[in-house]
């Protein structure tokens, strides 16, 4: 069985559609791209998959040391848990958009020679980042158990909101990632923009500080324009016992959707010429 439709017409640049059906037809290729990226990532490393845990753990140590030294509030959570919970999601976002930004160039040799829905390349970059998340998530569960006396863990919220926050993370990572992928293939300037953007965004995201630190409502609204804000806030709300600022979370979720739509729109609009530009 071959993974493309039996009868079709090759026409000048088709009108815009999501192409979800086609991506579904090519799901095995998506699987193989993800599988390859995960395999290659940890090939010839001594520690292998442990690297997926080491990076957030080291960052967590640094941030929680700095956080407690500077007495940054942490919504009554232990500092390590406060930062690590956000870092797990943040790592999906940062590695996801960095990888998808470069993904089209890294796979240029395939793009130039084989047809497939191009979107599966940034999707597989996001899935690869998701794999690392699951490794780190195991550590997070260990930490929740370890600190269970000091947190107000809510089972129902956890089961409901964790999938939601992961979905928001995936949506925004995929949206921004595919936008950057399409931009990078045309304007190589974005190879330099992306890492810088990721770094700067991290400090605009409540990873190491809570948004409640800001008392001025305007600055809260500005920070809520970040799609990762809602993901992290929903995630933490399952064990920090705080009331969600629903309006801010809503704004952030709208931004996640906007990034998704504009990312896919721009990608689909330009993808026909990727083979020539790559």
């Amino acid at each position: 069985m071959y993974i493309c439709p039996v009868e079709y017409e090759i026409k000048p640049h088709q009108k815009l559609n999501l192409g979800l059906k086609e991506i579904w037809l090519f799901r095995e290729m998506l699987f193989f791209f993800t599988w390859r990226d995960i395999k290659v990532k940890y090939k010839q490393t001594v520690l292998g998959f442990l690297w997926a845990i080491i990076q957030p753990l080291v960052l967590m140590t640094i941030f929680s040391l700095a956080g407690s030294a500077l007495s940054i509030p942490s919504e009554n959570l232990p500092h390590p848990l406060f930062t690590f919970s956000a870092l797990t999601l943040w790592m999906i976002f940062s590695t996801g958009i960095t990888n998808s930004g470069n993904s089209m160039l890294n796979n240029a040799n395939i793009i130039r020679k084989i047809y497939f829905p191009r979107l599966i390349i940034p999707i597989s970059s996001v899935f690869t980042a998701l794999f690392d998340f699951f490794m780190a998530f195991l550590i997070l569960i260990g930490m929740l158990i370890f600190y269970h006396n000091r947190i107000s863990f809510d089972w129902v919220k956890f089961l409901l909101l964790v999938p939601v926050s992961i979905s928001i993370t995936l949506i925004s990572t995929f949206g921004i990632g595919s936008l950057l992928a399409a931009l990078t293939i045309k304007y190589r300037d974005f190879r330099y923009v992306t890492p810088f953007l990721v770094q700067a965004l991290m400090f605009l995201t409540p990873v190491i500080y809570p948004i409640s630190m800001f008392h001025f409502l305007g600055s809260k609204y500005v920070l809520a324009c970040n799609p990762m804000y809602s993901a992290i806030e929903l995630f933490r709300s399952t064990f920090n016992g705080q009331v969600l600022e629903l309006r801010l979370v809503g704004i952030s979720m709208i931004f996640a959707l906007m990034f998704l739509i504009s990312g896919i729109y721009y990608f689909r609009k330009t993808e026909a010429y990727f083979a020539d530009l790559a």
Binding site: Y8, E9, I10, K11, I111, R112, Y115, Y273, A275
Partner: peptide, 11 residues
């Protein structure tokens, strides 16, 4: 791999 500017191919 590259779309035609005009015309079509029926497969």
């Amino acid at each position: 791999i590259t779309p035609p500017t005009t015309g079509s191919i029926i497969s």
